[in-house]
Amino acid sequence: MNSNDLPSLPYRILSVWYRHFLVYTRNLISNGLPPFLEPLIFLAGVGLGLGKYIVSMNNLPYIQYLASGLLVTSAMYTASFECTFGTFIRLEYDKVYDGILAAPITANDLIIGEIFWAGTKGCFFSFAVLTIVTVFGVIPIGLSLLAPVVGFFTGLMFASISLWVTSFVKTINHFNFYMTGVLSPMFFFSGVVFPISSLPKGLQPFAEIMPLTHVVRLVRAFCHHSFEISLFIDLIYVIFITIAMSILAVLRLKCRLIL
Protein backbone atom coordinates (compact mmCIF):
# COMPACT_ATOMS: atom_id res chain seq x y z
CA MET A 1 0.00 0.00 0.00
CA ASN A 2 1.36 3.39 -1.00
CA SER A 3 0.46 6.68 0.64
CA ASN A 4 0.01 8.22 -2.81
CA ASP A 5 -3.35 6.45 -2.95
CA LEU A 6 -4.55 8.63 -0.09
CA PRO A 7 -8.28 9.35 -0.43
CA SER A 8 -9.07 12.91 -1.55
CA LEU A 9 -10.75 15.51 0.67
CA PRO A 10 -14.24 15.19 -0.87
CA TYR A 11 -13.96 11.41 -0.67
CA ARG A 12 -12.98 11.54 2.99
CA ILE A 13 -15.89 13.81 3.84
CA LEU A 14 -18.20 11.55 1.86
CA SER A 15 -16.99 8.47 3.69
CA VAL A 16 -17.87 10.09 7.04
CA TRP A 17 -21.26 11.00 5.57
CA TYR A 18 -21.65 7.42 4.41
CA ARG A 19 -21.11 6.10 7.94
CA HIS A 20 -24.06 8.19 9.14
CA PHE A 21 -26.12 7.21 6.14
CA LEU A 22 -25.53 3.52 6.86
CA VAL A 23 -26.50 3.94 10.52
CA TYR A 24 -29.63 5.92 9.64
CA THR A 25 -30.88 3.59 6.90
CA ARG A 26 -30.29 0.52 9.06
CA ASN A 27 -33.50 1.29 10.92
CA LEU A 28 -35.41 2.57 7.95
CA ILE A 29 -38.91 2.31 9.39
CA SER A 30 -38.22 3.84 12.80
CA ASN A 31 -36.05 6.57 11.30
CA GLY A 32 -37.84 7.16 8.02
CA LEU A 33 -41.51 7.10 8.99
CA PRO A 34 -41.81 9.74 11.78
CA PRO A 35 -40.72 12.63 9.50
CA PHE A 36 -43.87 11.92 7.46
CA LEU A 37 -46.13 11.41 10.47
CA GLU A 38 -45.19 14.60 12.23
CA PRO A 39 -46.49 17.04 9.60
CA LEU A 40 -49.58 14.89 9.32
CA ILE A 41 -50.31 15.32 13.01
CA PHE A 42 -49.58 19.02 12.80
CA LEU A 43 -51.86 19.57 9.85
CA ALA A 44 -54.60 17.50 11.45
CA GLY A 45 -54.34 19.66 14.57
CA VAL A 46 -54.59 22.86 12.58
CA GLY A 47 -57.17 21.57 10.08
CA LEU A 48 -59.48 20.11 12.72
CA GLY A 49 -59.12 22.70 15.42
CA LEU A 50 -56.92 25.76 15.27
CA GLY A 51 -57.80 26.51 11.63
CA LYS A 52 -61.40 27.19 12.59
CA TYR A 53 -60.32 30.10 14.78
CA ILE A 54 -57.57 31.48 12.60
CA VAL A 55 -58.73 31.41 9.03
CA SER A 56 -56.08 33.42 7.28
CA MET A 57 -52.66 34.87 7.98
CA ASN A 58 -50.93 37.36 5.68
CA ASN A 59 -53.70 36.84 3.07
CA LEU A 60 -53.04 33.09 2.96
CA PRO A 61 -55.13 30.26 4.39
CA TYR A 62 -53.60 29.72 7.85
CA ILE A 63 -52.90 26.07 7.16
CA GLN A 64 -50.87 27.04 4.10
CA TYR A 65 -49.04 29.74 6.02
CA LEU A 66 -48.05 27.34 8.77
CA ALA A 67 -47.25 24.45 6.42
CA SER A 68 -44.70 26.46 4.47
CA GLY A 69 -42.94 27.30 7.73
CA LEU A 70 -42.88 23.66 8.79
CA LEU A 71 -40.86 22.85 5.69
CA VAL A 72 -37.82 24.44 7.37
CA THR A 73 -38.54 23.97 11.09
CA SER A 74 -38.48 20.21 10.56
CA ALA A 75 -35.02 20.60 9.02
CA MET A 76 -33.94 22.86 11.86
CA TYR A 77 -34.97 20.38 14.53
CA THR A 78 -33.47 17.30 12.94
CA ALA A 79 -30.12 18.97 12.23
CA SER A 80 -30.02 20.44 15.71
CA PHE A 81 -30.73 17.14 17.42
CA GLU A 82 -28.22 15.33 15.23
CA CYS A 83 -25.44 17.78 16.02
CA THR A 84 -26.14 18.20 19.73
CA PHE A 85 -27.26 14.93 21.34
CA GLY A 86 -26.08 12.81 18.41
CA THR A 87 -22.66 14.40 18.19
CA PHE A 88 -22.17 14.42 21.94
CA ILE A 89 -22.97 10.71 22.22
CA ARG A 90 -20.58 9.88 19.38
CA LEU A 91 -17.91 12.09 20.94
CA GLU A 92 -18.15 11.20 24.62
CA TYR A 93 -20.07 7.95 25.09
CA ASP A 94 -19.69 5.72 22.05
CA LYS A 95 -16.21 6.98 21.11
CA VAL A 96 -17.18 6.67 17.46
CA TYR A 97 -15.05 9.66 16.58
CA ASP A 98 -11.96 8.14 18.16
CA GLY A 99 -12.50 5.11 15.94
CA ILE A 100 -12.90 7.21 12.82
CA LEU A 101 -9.88 9.36 13.62
CA ALA A 102 -7.62 6.31 13.69
CA ALA A 103 -8.40 5.94 9.97
CA PRO A 104 -7.01 8.45 7.46
CA ILE A 105 -9.65 11.05 8.33
CA THR A 106 -8.76 14.38 9.93
CA ALA A 107 -10.82 16.12 12.62
CA ASN A 108 -11.82 18.67 9.96
CA ASP A 109 -13.05 15.96 7.58
CA LEU A 110 -15.03 14.44 10.41
CA ILE A 111 -16.76 17.67 11.44
CA ILE A 112 -17.52 18.77 7.88
CA GLY A 113 -18.89 15.30 7.14
CA GLU A 114 -21.08 15.68 10.20
CA ILE A 115 -22.42 19.02 8.92
CA PHE A 116 -23.17 17.60 5.48
CA TRP A 117 -24.97 14.67 6.99
CA ALA A 118 -27.15 17.02 9.03
CA GLY A 119 -27.80 18.98 5.83
CA THR A 120 -28.89 15.77 4.15
CA LYS A 121 -31.24 14.99 7.00
CA GLY A 122 -32.62 18.52 6.78
CA CYS A 123 -33.26 17.97 3.09
CA PHE A 124 -35.00 14.67 3.78
CA PHE A 125 -37.18 16.07 6.56
CA SER A 126 -38.23 18.99 4.35
CA PHE A 127 -39.00 16.51 1.63
CA ALA A 128 -41.18 14.51 4.02
CA VAL A 129 -43.17 17.60 5.00
CA LEU A 130 -43.41 18.63 1.35
CA THR A 131 -44.77 15.22 0.41
CA ILE A 132 -47.53 15.44 2.99
CA VAL A 133 -48.53 19.05 2.29
CA THR A 134 -48.48 18.41 -1.45
CA VAL A 135 -50.48 15.19 -1.27
CA PHE A 136 -53.12 16.92 0.84
CA GLY A 137 -53.12 19.90 -1.50
CA VAL A 138 -52.17 22.33 1.25
CA ILE A 139 -49.46 23.94 -0.83
CA PRO A 140 -49.97 24.06 -4.61
CA ILE A 141 -47.36 22.25 -6.69
CA GLY A 142 -44.84 24.57 -8.28
CA LEU A 143 -41.55 26.01 -7.10
CA SER A 144 -42.44 24.61 -3.68
CA LEU A 145 -40.80 21.43 -4.97
CA LEU A 146 -37.51 23.20 -4.31
CA ALA A 147 -38.25 23.36 -0.57
CA PRO A 148 -35.91 20.43 0.20
CA VAL A 149 -33.04 22.52 -1.17
CA VAL A 150 -33.86 25.19 1.40
CA GLY A 151 -34.17 22.35 3.91
CA PHE A 152 -30.63 21.25 3.03
CA PHE A 153 -29.20 24.72 3.69
CA THR A 154 -31.29 24.99 6.87
CA GLY A 155 -29.73 21.70 7.97
CA LEU A 156 -26.21 22.92 7.22
CA MET A 157 -26.77 26.17 9.09
CA PHE A 158 -28.27 24.62 12.22
CA ALA A 159 -25.69 21.84 12.18
CA SER A 160 -22.86 24.36 12.29
CA ILE A 161 -24.53 26.38 15.05
CA SER A 162 -25.33 23.23 17.06
CA LEU A 163 -21.80 21.84 16.72
CA TRP A 164 -20.44 25.10 18.02
CA VAL A 165 -22.81 24.87 21.00
CA THR A 166 -21.80 21.22 21.50
CA SER A 167 -18.15 22.22 21.67
CA PHE A 168 -18.90 24.01 24.98
CA VAL A 169 -21.03 21.30 26.50
CA LYS A 170 -19.59 19.15 29.28
CA THR A 171 -22.65 17.13 30.26
CA ILE A 172 -25.46 16.10 27.97
CA ASN A 173 -28.14 17.82 30.11
CA HIS A 174 -26.82 21.22 29.13
CA PHE A 175 -28.48 20.78 25.75
CA ASN A 176 -31.82 21.36 27.43
CA PHE A 177 -30.91 25.05 27.66
CA TYR A 178 -30.26 25.18 23.94
CA MET A 179 -33.46 23.34 23.06
CA THR A 180 -35.73 25.35 25.35
CA GLY A 181 -33.80 28.59 25.40
CA VAL A 182 -32.90 28.93 21.73
CA LEU A 183 -34.79 26.59 19.44
CA SER A 184 -38.25 26.95 21.00
CA PRO A 185 -38.28 30.78 20.92
CA MET A 186 -36.95 30.58 17.39
CA PHE A 187 -39.90 28.40 16.41
CA PHE A 188 -42.41 30.90 17.73
CA PHE A 189 -40.79 34.23 16.91
CA SER A 190 -39.25 33.72 13.47
CA GLY A 191 -42.35 34.13 11.37
CA VAL A 192 -43.33 30.48 11.29
CA VAL A 193 -46.51 30.66 13.36
CA PHE A 194 -47.32 34.35 12.80
CA PRO A 195 -45.64 37.16 10.83
CA ILE A 196 -42.76 39.07 12.40
CA SER A 197 -44.63 42.31 11.65
CA SER A 198 -47.12 41.34 14.37
CA LEU A 199 -44.36 41.46 17.00
CA PRO A 200 -43.95 44.63 19.04
CA LYS A 201 -41.72 47.09 17.12
CA GLY A 202 -38.95 46.79 19.72
CA LEU A 203 -38.73 43.04 19.34
CA GLN A 204 -38.68 42.90 15.56
CA PRO A 205 -34.89 43.44 15.22
CA PHE A 206 -34.37 40.40 17.45
CA ALA A 207 -36.42 38.30 15.09
CA GLU A 208 -34.14 39.47 12.28
CA ILE A 209 -31.11 38.11 14.12
CA MET A 210 -32.63 34.67 14.41
CA PRO A 211 -31.29 32.33 11.72
CA LEU A 212 -34.63 30.60 11.26
CA THR A 213 -36.31 33.86 10.14
CA HIS A 214 -34.21 33.96 6.99
CA VAL A 215 -34.75 30.40 5.84
CA VAL A 216 -38.47 30.78 6.52
CA ARG A 217 -38.54 33.76 4.13
CA LEU A 218 -36.64 31.83 1.50
CA VAL A 219 -38.90 28.80 1.64
CA ARG A 220 -42.06 30.96 1.64
CA ALA A 221 -40.85 32.70 -1.49
CA PHE A 222 -40.70 29.35 -3.28
CA CYS A 223 -44.02 28.18 -1.88
CA HIS A 224 -45.96 31.32 -2.69
CA HIS A 225 -44.05 32.40 -5.78
CA SER A 226 -43.40 35.85 -4.39
CA PHE A 227 -39.82 36.95 -4.86
CA GLU A 228 -38.39 40.18 -3.55
CA ILE A 229 -34.95 41.61 -3.96
CA SER A 230 -34.50 41.55 -0.16
CA LEU A 231 -34.32 37.76 -0.34
CA PHE A 232 -30.68 38.16 -1.32
CA ILE A 233 -30.00 39.53 2.13
CA ASP A 234 -31.59 36.43 3.64
CA LEU A 235 -29.51 34.22 1.39
CA ILE A 236 -26.28 36.02 2.25
CA TYR A 237 -27.16 35.83 5.94
CA VAL A 238 -27.64 32.07 5.72
CA ILE A 239 -24.39 31.53 3.82
CA PHE A 240 -22.43 33.79 6.14
CA ILE A 241 -23.72 32.20 9.37
CA THR A 242 -23.16 28.71 8.02
CA ILE A 243 -19.56 29.36 7.02
CA ALA A 244 -18.68 31.39 10.11
CA MET A 245 -20.22 28.92 12.55
CA SER A 246 -18.67 25.96 10.72
CA ILE A 247 -15.22 27.48 11.12
CA LEU A 248 -15.82 28.20 14.82
CA ALA A 249 -17.22 24.70 15.38
CA VAL A 250 -14.26 23.07 13.63
CA LEU A 251 -11.73 25.11 15.59
CA ARG A 252 -13.33 24.41 18.95
CA LEU A 253 -14.23 20.76 18.43
CA LYS A 254 -10.77 20.02 17.09
CA CYS A 255 -9.35 20.86 20.51
CA ARG A 256 -11.60 18.21 22.00
CA LEU A 257 -10.65 15.60 19.41
CA ILE A 258 -6.90 16.15 19.08
CA LEU A 259 -5.30 16.41 22.48
Binding site: D5, L6, P7, Y11, R12, S15, Y18, R19, L22, V23, R26, D94, K95, V96, D98, G99, I100, A102, A103, P104, I105
Partner: peptide, 26 residues
Protein backbone atom coordinates in the same frame (compact mmCIF):
# COMPACT_ATOMS: atom_id res chain seq x y z
CA UNK B 1 -4.51 1.50 15.30
CA UNK B 2 -6.04 -0.69 18.00
CA UNK B 3 -7.17 1.62 20.82
CA UNK B 4 -7.17 0.79 24.49
CA UNK B 5 -10.85 1.65 24.80
CA UNK B 6 -13.23 -0.32 22.63
CA UNK B 7 -14.58 2.14 20.07
CA UNK B 8 -16.44 -0.15 17.72
CA UNK B 9 -19.52 1.40 16.17
CA UNK B 10 -22.37 -0.02 18.26
CA UNK B 11 -24.91 1.15 15.73
CA UNK B 12 -23.48 -1.11 13.03
CA UNK B 13 -22.97 -4.86 12.90
CA UNK B 14 -19.62 -6.66 12.64
CA UNK B 15 -19.45 -6.66 8.85
CA UNK B 16 -20.58 -3.04 8.55
CA UNK B 17 -18.02 -1.94 11.13
CA UNK B 18 -15.30 -3.34 8.94
CA UNK B 19 -16.91 -2.15 5.73
CA UNK B 20 -17.10 1.54 6.67
CA UNK B 21 -13.52 1.31 7.79
CA UNK B 22 -12.43 -0.04 4.41
CA UNK B 23 -14.35 2.85 2.95
CA UNK B 24 -12.31 5.35 4.99
CA UNK B 25 -9.19 4.01 3.30
CA UNK B 26 -10.67 4.41 -0.15
Amino acid sequence: VVPQEDNLDEELNVWQNLYIYGNFYG
